[in-house]
C-alpha cells in the first residue's frame, strides 16, 4: 500500500518534470523545472530501490539520507520563494530568503549535519528506520536529525499560508489558479502536520507516509494547476 503511494507520487513528479522540459529548454521559468526535478530526485531517494542503489555507491553509511535532506531543503526553499513572490507577498519572501529565513536554514543545517556525524549510521536503511545500531543514544541522535529535517519544510509552509489564503479569496483569478492554490494549501498544511506527526503513537507511524505523500502531491499538483492556468490564459486574453 505504502509502496503504491510512493511510486505514484514519484511518477506524478517525474511526469511533471518531464513535461516542463520544453519550457526549460526555451528558458521559460527554469526554477519551476528545477523544483520538479529536485522533488523527483527526493522521492526516488525515499523509495528502497533508489535509496539502496545510491547509498551503496556512496559507501553504505546513509550519506544518501543526508543528501536527501538537503535536496528537500533546496526544493522547499526554491518553491517557497517562487510561490511567495508569485502570490505577491513581500513579507513571506522576506521570511523565507531574508535574514530570518537564512538563519533558520543555517540552524536547521547544523541541526541536521551535527547529529548525523555524531550518530553511528553504518548500514544502509531507507529513511534510517532500521539502522543496525539501535542503542538509545544513537536513536536519540537520529530522532533529533529527523525532527530538524521536518522542521524546515514546515517553517516554509507556515510562511506560505497567508499568501495562499489571500489568493484563494481573489475571485477574479481563473478557477484553475485558485484550485492550484487550494492544492498548495493542502500540501502546506500536510507539511506542518508532518513535523507534528512524531507525537503519533508508534502503531500509527504508517500515517507519516500518507502525510508526506500528501504534502508532496499537494505542492506538485498545485504548481501544475497554476501552470495550466497560465497556458489557458495565454490562449485567451484575461477577462475584463
Amino acid at each position: 500500500m505504502i509502496a503504491i503511494l510512493q511510486w505514484t507520487t514519484l511518477a506524478v513528479c517525474g511526469l511533471l518534470a518531464a513535461a516542463r522540459v520544453p519550457s526549460a529548454v526555451r528558458g521559460q521559468n527554469r526554477s519551476l523545472f528545477g523544483i520538479f526535478v529536485l522533488m523527483t530526485f527526493a522521492l526516488a531517494l525515499s523509495i528502497d530501490v533508489g535509496y539502496t542503489a545510491l547509498d551503496s555507491f556512496l559507501g553504505g553509511h546513509n550519506v544518501a539520507n543526508l543528501l536527501l535532506r538537503f535536496v528537500i531543503y533546496g526544493a522547499v526553499m526554491l518553491a517557497g520563494y517562487r510561490i511567495a513572490k508569485g502570490f505577491d507577498s513581500a513579507r513571506s519572501v522576506w521570511f523565507i530568503v531574508g535574514p530570518i529565513g537564512m538563519a533558520v536554514l543555517a540552524a536547521v543545517s547544523v541541526a541536521t549535519v551535527v547529529p548525523f556525524l555524531m550518530a553511528n549510521t553504518a548500514g544502509t536503511s531507507t529513511g534510517l528506520t532500521h539502522l543496525p545500531d539501535q542503542s538509545p543514544h544513537n536513536t536519540d541522535l537520529i530522532r533529533l536529525y529527523t525532527v530538524a529535517g521536518r522542521f524546515y519544510p514546515s517553517y516554509v509552509a507556515a510562511c506560505l499560508l497567508p499568501p495562499i489564503l489571500g489568493v484563494l479569496k481573489r475571485r477574479i483569478l481563473p478557477r484553475v489558479v485558485r484550485a492550484g492554490a487550494a492544492m498548495l494549501l493542502v500540501g502546506a498544511v500536510a507539511m506542518i502536520v508532518l513535523s507534528l506527526s512524531d507525537m503519533l503513537p508508534r502503531s500509527l507511524a504508517y500515517l507519516q507516509y500518507v502525510i508526506s505523500s500528501t504534502a508532496v502531491l499537494g505542492l506538485a499538483v498545485g504548481l501544475a494547476l497554476i501552470w495550466v492556468g497560465r497556458v489557458r490564459a495565454a490562449r485567451k486574453p484575461l477577462r475584463r
Binding site: N29, I83, G86, D88, R170, I172, I226, G229, V231, L238
Partner: peptide
C-alpha cells in the same frame, strides 16, 4: 483596481507559470 489585479496575475504567471 483592475490594473492592480492584472499586475498581480502577471506576477503569478511570471513566477509560477
Amino acid at each position: 483596481r483592475h490594473e492592480h489585479e492584472q499586475a498581480q496575475t502577471e506576477k503569478i504567471w511570471e513566477n509560477l507559470g
